[in-house]
Design a protein around this nucleic acid. Sequence first.
DNA 1: AATCAAATTTGACCACTGTCAAGTATCTAT
DNA 2: ATAGATACTTGACAGTGGTCAAATTTGATT
Lengths: 255, 255
Amino acid sequence: MSISPYSYSGSKPKASIRLAANSCPFNTACEGCSSRHISLCNVLDSNDLKSFSKLSTDFQKAAKQIICAEDEKAEHIYNIRSGAVRLSKMLSDGRRQITGFLFAGDFFGLSCKDKYSFTAEAITEVKICRFNRTKIIESFQDYPRLGERVFDMTRTELNSTHDQMLLLGRKTAKEKLCSFLIIMKEKSGRINVRDENEVDIPMSRSDIADYLGLTVETVSRQFTNLHKLGLIELDGAHRVFLKNSKALLALAEGE
Amino acid sequence: MSISPYSYSGSKPKASIRLAANSCPFNTACEGCSSRHISLCNVLDSNDLKSFSKLSTDFQKAAKQIICAEDEKAEHIYNIRSGAVRLSKMLSDGRRQITGFLFAGDFFGLSCKDKYSFTAEAITEVKICRFNRTKIIESFQDYPRLGERVFDMTRTELNSTHDQMLLLGRKTAKEKLCSFLIIMKEKSGRINVRDENEVDIPMSRSDIADYLGLTVETVSRQFTNLHKLGLIELDGAHRVFLKNSKALLALAEGE
DNA sequence: AATCAAATTTGACCACTGTCAAGTATCTAT
DNA sequence: ATAGATACTTGACAGTGGTCAAATTTGATT
């Protein structure tokens, strides 16, 4: 089995915590950041980046750790440098909806008011940089292009939540899973360019279920179903090969 | 039956079209706009408003008219002055998801890229002012408070789509309808302060169904159900009296 | 006021997906 | 390597909400 860009299978919490204390070697300078080209800060030139980097703090979380929790005071916004994160909301009886899977280059926490409106958890080991919300919003004055970039990303995000509403409200289980696979294909293409049809699925079946508004069992059955239809090949639970992504896309759109 | 703030029952298309040609008496000045206090332009002072108003065009649409269509070139952003609008997305086979109901003070069209990602239709007769997208985005330079306001409203909107995802993915039909009634109560309170428990429902059962990811029949059954439970009183299909909004809220949250 | 069309409600039935349970595979720890 | 825990898959059955159809109400048109 080829090496995954996520380390969901081999992550060791203890080692991760040690690294987190150590922090990133480029703590005070974002210049060496490996995710800069896809992050919000990619609009800053070398000079601006130097002063801007003082606003950021770098840290790391092991898989399954909470990054921030729903209803907690929203003091920071977070930018993912590597790894995978899930954002979720819960009903009082434990029913959960995952509102998004986030990867390198994605940020979260800006849309909240005084409290976080979701819980953010590490799916794999993640590297994150964090900014004070107030300060970064103020900094949009000094770095107008950054403000524009953040606004732009927020608009894009709003657009894709509308697609997700169409999925949740109107698609069948099969269409939902096909949509999910297409989404994951697109996201993984942004991060790692190997065979574009070889898609990593860092999250559990239960995460997928809570993202698609289904149960684990239904998700599992639909994986089996798509395999029987000859549309996908499974290599363990966390790696999928899309044998016919055109057909998957058509199914995803209900055609 | 008391008079509704929407004119969904008595609207006459012909008359509306005539009015639309006539446009608003305050066409070149937003000063007299009755929805200014709740609209995005409420951050502008009297001077700025005068020059800003030159960017806007006023018009009116009768109920059931399309304001802008999915996949159409996105040239404008729209601000609702009065009436109710629905935004929706469709699958190729006609399945529809309504992503939002909009009222006086709401705007739409900003989150789109080159094409509109939704169709906007008038539910009731609506008064709307329209801005050129490019020009208004440029104008954020001159009116920074306007840019902040729009950004802020976009963030709020993103937050509420997350709530809607939780609703669509994880709530039961009963919980969905209770949530809808609570949402409508809050929105109508913003526009018209009468008895806060007397809620106008300008949209059809079919619109509600497509908003909640249900069928018309299920929506109708749940209305009947809530009535039997003594939680609501119906005065026709478009006016609801919430007899116990606390209980409705609890049901909406799955408690 | 009368007629027709559209919207809403209600009923009967059923399918998709959920629930509960058991079996299998995978990962982690020793 | 072995054992235990966790994650995933599969099966049997059931229920919520969907489908189809008919009745009723509401609203528009003449």
